[in-house]
């Protein structure tokens, strides 16, 4: 497992992380405020985010692969095809079966999936071009409570360490999970397997609890007393500010186009 960050020196990478966070949130909000059936607007929203990805030199493979993550959830919108508003069109299935489908529902379902896919792309571009420490500083400057930012920062630091521990546990389990051919109960019962997994979770918890004590000791030894340093809310460079304003204006424009063309 790796961070999603793809190192680079493009203008997008160097942009103040606050600009990227605000733009991404605005992007997702405007896109989701666009009515269904606004295909021209969707295409242009996608164009905008693909352009940013191009400027940041992100590979198409990355964008496509990551976007798959929202796909399983598309199932949630599929029922709209059958329950959407009238008029219903009968769909003749092989075997004489007829299902009433709603073309309007189909359009809505496709719109939801399209918007979801484009939203994920925007989130991918943010995560791929912003280093985690920069993202955390930006969040704190955008008024996310500093305690929460500190907790998340520490969490991200130990994420990979503990993920390695879990991978070690899973490998150790797999290396002992041999099945005898002809055994009537290969792998034991489901309950037994669940309990073993739970035991792993429990020992992970205890080990992490002990680790947190050691981390605490290391922090305290270097003067930590629970007070977190304030981040100066450094002003945005005028260039970044102008770029952000331009980006937001573009998003608003695309949204209006969506209103005019959507249904």
């Amino acid at each position: 497992m790796h961070e999603l960050y793809v190192s680079g020196d493009s203008g997008i990478h160097q942009l103040d992380a606050r600009v990227k966070v605000i733009f991404t949130v605005a992007f997702v909000v405007f896109l989701n405020l666009t009515p269904s059936r606004a295909w021209p607007a969707y295409i242009l929203f996608l164009t905008a985010i693909v352009s940013v990805a191009l400027i940041a030199r992100l590979g198409a493979g990355l964008l496509l692969r990551r976007a798959l993550i929202a796909l399983p959830f598309a199932l949630a919108a599929v029922p709209l095809i059958f329950t959407g508003p009238a008029p219903r069109v009968p769909l003749h299935m092989p075997g004489g079966l007829t299902i009433a489908t709603s073309p309007e529902g189909l359009v809505r379902c496709a719109s939801i999936v399209a918007k979801s896919w484009i939203s994920v792309e925007a989130a991918v571009v943010l995560a791929a071009t912003t280093r985690v420490p920069d993202l955390l500083v930006a969040l704190q400057r955008l008024r996310v409570p500093k305690l929460l930012v500190a907790v998340v920062g520490l969490m991200v630091r130990y994420l990979f360490v503990i993920v390695d521990e879990v991978n070690g546990m899973l490998r150790a389990r797999a290396s002992r999970s041999a099945t005898l051919t002809g055994s009537r109960h290969p792998g034991g019962s489901v309950f037994w397997r669940a309990r073993v997994t739970g035991g792993m979770a429990g020992s992970l918890f205890l080990r992490s609890l002990e680790r947190s004590d050691r981390v605490y000791a290391a922090m305290v030894s270097r003067g930590y007393n629970g007070e977190l340093p304030d981040r100066q809310p450094a002003a945005l460079p005028r260039k970044d500010l102008a770029l952000l304003a331009l980006g937001l204006a573009l998003l608003a424009l695309l949204w209006m186009l969506g209103l005019l063309t959507g249904g």
Partner: peptide, 24 residues
């Protein structure tokens, strides 16, 4: 108090990683 950040941070990482644990 001052234990909040290390305790919550490390345990959040543990829950995150713990979500990888599975059984067939």
């Amino acid at each position: 108090g001052e234990r909040q950040v290390p305790l919550m941070g490390v345990l959040a990482a543990a829950i995150f990683a713990g979500q990888m644990l599975n059984f067939s």
